[in-house]
Design a protein around this nucleic acid. Structure first.
Lengths: 187, 187
DNA sequence: TGTAGCATGTAAGCCGTTACATGATTGA
DNA sequence: TCAATCATGTAACGGCTTACATGCTACA
C-alpha cells in the first residue's frame, strides 16, 4: 500500500503523472508531456520534457508504472501505463490526510506590491499585458472544456476546466478593480 | 545598472527581498523572514529561514545590499539594508520587460481532477477543509489590511492585501460552486 | 528558572529547469 | 526534399527545503 519501505514516496508531480496515466491509459513520455500541458499546467505545473522522463524512470523503479518497449526503425519506443501497485498507491495518496494550501507565484502582484519604486504607471502597464494573457488562457480553457463534452469519464477534468475559466474571469475583474485603484491613487 | 558582468542576476525571490528592504529599511535576516511571512507569502513564497540568509549573502556579494555587523554578547548581529546599487538594479528589474504568467500549485484542484479514482466524496471532504483554511487566510489578510491603514507609504501593500481578500473570497465562491457540481454528479 | 522568541548559520538533498544531443516519421 | 512533429535521453546547475547546530534575551 505504502511506497516500498526504503523508497522515497513520489513527489506530487509524480502522483499527478500517475493520475494522467489513470485517465488516459498507456502512452509515451512525449504524449504524457503533451497531456500535462493541456491539463496539469492550469493547476499544478507544466513539467519539462526531461523532467517527465526522469520522473517516469523513478516511478518505474518504484514499480508504480509498467513500461513496454517496442523497436521501431532500430530505436526503442517506450510506452508507459499505470501498474496495479501504482493505482493502489495513487488512490491511497488521494485519500490520505493533509492537502497543502495552494501556492501562488504571482509576479504581476509582486510588481504591484513594489509600486512605490516605480509609480502607478508601471503596474498599470503590467496589468494591461496580463489582461491579454488572461483572455488567451480563457480561450484555451474554453476550447478544452468544449472538447471534453459531456462524457462522464471526463466529468472531473470538465469541472476543473470550468473552475479555471471562472478563476481567470475573476482575475480579469480583479485587474479592473486594481486598475481603478491605481488611477485614483495617481496624483 | 545591470547586475555586474559575470554575476548571475538575482532570482525573483532575491528581487522580492530587495523590495522588502526598500519598504522597511534596515533589518535583520530574521526580521526579513517575518516580514516575508506577512507579505510575500500571499503572492510569491514564504522562503525558509536558511534561504533568506543564503539569499542575503548572495545579494551582499553582488553589492545589492549593505550589511552592518554589531557585536552583542559576543556574537554578531547583522543588519541589512538596500544599497544604492541595489535600488538601481531593483528599479531596473521592475521596469523591464516580460512578466511571467502566474503559477498556481493547487493540490485541492488536483484532487478534484482525479475524482474518478475516489468518487465525489473525497473531493468534497477536501473542499470542506479548504473552506476553513480560506476563511483563516481572509482573517489574516483583513488584519494586515487593517494595520496598514491609510498611510500612503503603504498604499501598494494595501492594494495587494485587498486583492488577496478578494481572491480568497472568490475561491470560497468557487468552492461552493464545485461542491454543488459534485453533489449533482453523485448519483 | 525556564521557556518562547530572537538570531545566525551549515549540510545534504530534492525538484525542476535549461542546454545539449540525437534520430525517425509524416505530410506539404 | 524539407520542415514540423514525434520521440528519447544526458549533464549541469539553480532554487529552495529539511534537518541539524548553536546561543542570547526578555519575561512570566
Amino acid at each position: 500500500m505504502l511506497p516500498m519501505p526504503g523508497q522515497a514516496p513520489p513527489s506530487v508531480t509524480g502522483y499527478a503523472l500517475l493520475g494522467l496515466l489513470s485517465l488516459r491509459g498507456e502512452m509515451s513520455g512525449y504524449g504524457l508531456k503533451q497531456l500535462a500541458d493541456r491539463t496539469l499546467r492550469f493547476f499544478w505545473v507544466a513539467p519539462a520534457m526531461s523532467h517527465v522522463y526522469s520522473e517516469l524512470e523513478r516511478l518505474r523503479t518504484a514499480g508504480l508504472v509498467a513500461q513496454t518497449v517496442a523497436n521501431r526503425g532500430g530505436r526503442r519506443l517506450r510506452r508507459y501505463s499505470l501498474s496495479e501497485r501504482g493505482e493502489r498507491v495513487l488512490k491511497a495518496w488521494l485519500s490520505a490526510g493533509q492537502v497543502e494550501f495552494p501556492v501562488l507565484k504571482h509576479e504581476v502582484v509582486l510588481r504591484l506590491f513594489l509600486g512605490h519604486l516605480t509609480g502607478p504607471d508601471r503596474p498599470l502597464q503590467v496589468l494591461d499585458a496580463y489582461r491579454l494573457q488572461l483572455n488567451g488562457r480563457i480561450e484555451e480553457l474554453r476550447a478544452i472544456r468544449g472538447r471534453l463534452g459531456t462524457d462522464p469519464h471526463f466529468q472531473y477534468p470538465a469541472m476543473v476546466a470550468e473552475w479555471g475559466i471562472r478563476l481567470y474571469q475573476e482575475e480579469l475583474a480583479s485587474v479592473e478593480q486594481v486598475g481603478s485603484a491605481l488611477v485614483e491613487a495617481d496624483p
